[in-house]
Amino acid sequence: MSFIIESSKLTKKFPERVAVRSLSLNVKKGELLGLLGPNGAGKTTTLRMLSGIISPTSGSAQVAGYDIENEVEDLHEVIGLLTETPGFYESLSAWENLEFFANFYADLDVDYQIEKYLKIMGLWNRRDEKVSVFSKGMKQKLALARSLIHEPEILFFDEPTAGLDPRASREIRDLLMKLKKEGRTIFLCTHNLEEAETLADRIALINTDLIALDTTSNLKSQIFKKMVIVDLESVNNHILDTVEKLKFVVNVKQKDNQLQIELIDFDQNTPDLIKALVESDGRIKGVSKAKHSMEDIYLALIKSDEGEEI
């Protein structure tokens, strides 16, 4: 499998602070990578470097085979960038704005493309209105239209649903799914966990440094694979004692009649755990693997990252 985005030790230092440190990651063609991290984690800076708008302090990257520092103009023909703020000329109409941006690309049927994307975004009827009268959601859709106007194979989106109402967010997420189905590679910055979980093939968690990079399910099992939840009719000290004394039990938490037990190895230890519970007269109502939300993973990872730094 070839990679369409390859970055190696990408670093950006500003005079006051390091924004991104030694970021190495690869993205496959057609993949949707979610770049997740808290505010100030370096998401926008990463995006700006990969889209050839600012230069890394050190490290390098190739996007669509182009060097992000030395082949910027060629690179810009094949990528689409959705910036953090939509950024339009407010005294010009939606059409005029798109026309201006579209005219910079080589060999583009500008009128056809503008019509196509204004229709997809549901803005066709408003094409002659000044952008200044547009709502935030409409501006964001227009910005998406602009990023797609030249049919780029790689898309860089910086928080596309930030600050939008649920309906507009939903429409934009549906569009992202559609773009993914068309086979485009999407690099999606977000601090919306649900968005990352539902859309992304893989998630890169950053906080200046790259903390984790994997699929959501792998991330989950990596961090929480050892937790089992047992519901009992009742929990007494005898049962608790027995469980705590088991060699493969790392930690036990009691919550009413539920035990949350951390094991060394879920698959190997669970049968032995249940056997022990039954032998100490525990009446088991149910056993389940601990379910964790993206939020749990995120918080756990960010926490461990911050813990290391202290």
């Binding site: 889209s51 708008i53 810009h76 910036t83 950024g87 339009f88 910079f104 910005a143």
Partner: peptide, 11 residues
Amino acid sequence: YGALEPLLATP
């Protein structure tokens, strides 16, 4: 308007 950044992302 923040139009410079998207502008700089074109060729």
